[in-house]
Nucleic acid binder design. Structure first.
Lengths: 155, 155
DNA sequence: ATAATAATAGTCAATATTAGTCAAAGTTGG
DNA sequence: CCAACTTTGACTAATATTGACTATTATTAT
């Protein structure tokens, strides 16, 4: 019970820092060394425990002076709607259905008019324009789901 | 946070000067000496951080009295610059370069932070995530050009 | 004027320094 | 035993740093 796995311990450590500050910046190799694990385990911890659903945004940079940044974000109250929409979209969606969803997001004030227009522009039929329409609908679904996940953040 | 790479520091320094004046003129060797790097690193900083995607135009002259001039430009208002940018994007763009462009648009206040984040979400590496990276970059280019053209009609 | 030299900046490729991906192997709770 | 979760490491990708070599322009000497 007390000796949990090392991923849990690293998670707890990072979250204890995030309790004080809104965001942290780490060097993957340093944290890995500190806890005596291989560097890629840090990626595992982040991928399983610092997701957007949990209220964390992660960005990173490779190369000299590289880093991993983890930021705590405020999630909106009503994520159910987003969950349901993501569920509904699944793996594939037509441009018509995507339009309906974006319109409803606008009506429910998740998006301003300009935001809605921008999002629409990214996924409309003439923008994506795949020969293979099946693939186009898959890509559109990924884009729309990504937008919906972004909307979880209240800022 | 403090141990960033020297390229970022040079970038920040140059941009801090550009915050006051629309353009600056530097001597490559002087800046290199000031930050204790080889002169060609200045070229690296410029090539990676002061491109047209970033909203900057650069001109230079060699020989005695040589210089490098960097000028801030406006990506959307100036139709020529926008055309040039779209031209540069062409049929394909990496996520890194796309990020630079979106950041410039945000800095120039053509996009709010939320709009920028939404747009970024649509073309992020993890969103599009094609096995065929070449195709991924093509799709990203289409999305980005579509966004730029949408911004053109300011509403 | 012309040629030689000096004083710049540019290019490119090798190397270094990070982080990411993925799948195999190990562990654990039910 | 099985399924889910964790750990590991080989391989990949992105970014930064460096320096040798090249190109261009200005100045000086003839």
């Amino acid at each position: 019970m007390q000796n949990r796995n090392i991923s849990d311990i690293i998670e707890k450590y990072l979250k204890s820092i995030l309790a004080d500050s809104q965001k942290i910046e780490i060097k993957r190799s340093e944290i890995a060394e500190q806890f005596d694990v291989v560097p890629s385990q840090i990626n595992y911890v982040i991928k399983t425990r610092f997701t957007i659903q949990n209220g964390y945004l992660v960005e990173s940079k490779r190369g000299g002076g590289g880093y991993i940044r983890i930021a705590k974000v405020n999630l909106i109250d009503d994520t159910d709607v987003l969950d349901q929409l993501i569920d509904l979209i699944g793996e594939s969606i037509t441009s018509g259905k995507a339009l309906q969803i974006i319109q409803s997001l606008y009506e429910d004030k998740f998006l301003t008019q300009k935001e809605a227009n921008l999002v629409l522009a990214t996924m409309d039929r003439t923008t994506l324009d795949f020969a293979d329409k099946r693939l186009e609908n898959v890509v559109r679904a990924r884009i729309l789901v990504s937008v919906l996940n972004r909307l979880r953040c209240a800022d």
